[in-house]
């Protein structure tokens, strides 16, 4: 089975995003960038499918292809995935941040070429917080989707996925090929070992341009402004319960 994992280079999750003074966006100059945390989980699961870790049979996956759409430096993100155990990478270079619809169309073109049996991807990128690309890709391909996966079992040509939903858990069986988007509880991603980082340097990363795919990536959305949300300020300290309860009563919330 071939697994495709789309990964995005985003602001590191430990960094607090700062809005630019001219309200055109978020300041990313000299900010630490990393692989979207959910995509790390997707890569980890793909590697486990290959290794036969946890409940997966060894060799469930035999090839893992990682694809990123983004700036030149997104190669580093792909390299990280290769060091975790993915086999090869593809970077579709774009200097502008593409909208989920355009990303989904490009990924569809990649799928048409690569013909994977399973697409594992993050449920959400932590910059745009869209939570959209996986579902859109599934729709464009006319494939089933299983989003927000907390558990994945591949067996009998199906992906059986336990999904984290409001109210609890829902289990679906999706006929392969399918798109699975992953949630936080699926696994804990590994740190790549030094030998694997060295090995990853020799793995192939194919370079393409958006134009190579001939799909319509024209933006549909115009950002009018990006502003800072209203700030909350620290209030007062209380030292005992009676004081706290009195203050909550005064505030009208008890």
């Amino acid at each position: 089975m071939k697994v495709l994992v789309p990964v995005k280079r985003v602001i590191d999750y430990n960094v607090k995003a700062r809005v630019k003074a001219d309200q055109t966006g978020v300041d990313l100059a000299n900010v630490k960038m990393s692989m979207n945390p959910f995509d790390e989980i997707a890569v980890e699961e793909a590697v486990r499918l290959k290794e036969g870790k946890e409940h997966h049979a060894a060799g469930t996956a035999d090839e893992i292809v990682v694809v990123s759409i983004g700036v030149q430096q997104a190669q580093e993100t792909i390299r990280t995935a290769l060091a975790m155990g993915a086999d090869r990478g593809l970077l579709i270079q774009s200097d502008t941040d593409l909208e989920p619809l355009a990303v989904a169309k490009l990924l569809k073109a990649v799928v048409d070429e690569e013909k994977p049996d399973l697409i594992l991807m993050g449920k959400q990128s932590i910059d745009g917080d869209n939570n959209a690309v996986g579902q859109m890709l599934a729709a464009l391909l006319d494939w089933p989707q299983a989003t927000f996966a907390g558990k994945l079992v591949i067996e009998g040509g199906k992906a059986t996925v336990t999904r984290e939903v409001d109210g609890g858990l829902q289990t679906l069986a999706a006929t392969l090929p399918a798109v699975v988007t992953v949630d936080l509880r699926l696994n804990t991603p590994r740190y790549a070992s030094l030998p694997n980082i060295m090995k990853a340097k020799k793995k192939e990363i194919a370079m393409k341009a958006v134009a190579d795919y001939g799909v319509d990536t024209a933006p549909r959305l115009t950002v009018q402004k990006v502003t800072e949300p209203p700030k909350r300020s620290a209030g007062v300290k209380v030292t005992d319960a009676a004081d706290l309860v009195a203050k909550l009563k005064t505030a009208g919330v008890l």
């Binding site: 995003a17 932590i126 910059d127 917080d129 990006v226 800072e228 949300p229």
Partner: peptide, 17 residues
């Protein structure tokens, strides 16, 4: 208007669709 970056920014976007 919608929050982005874990609510650290709010973006106002206009759609052409």
């Amino acid at each position: 208007t919608r929050p982005i970056y874990a609510g650290n920014a709010l973006e106002t976007i206009q759609t052409a669709d």
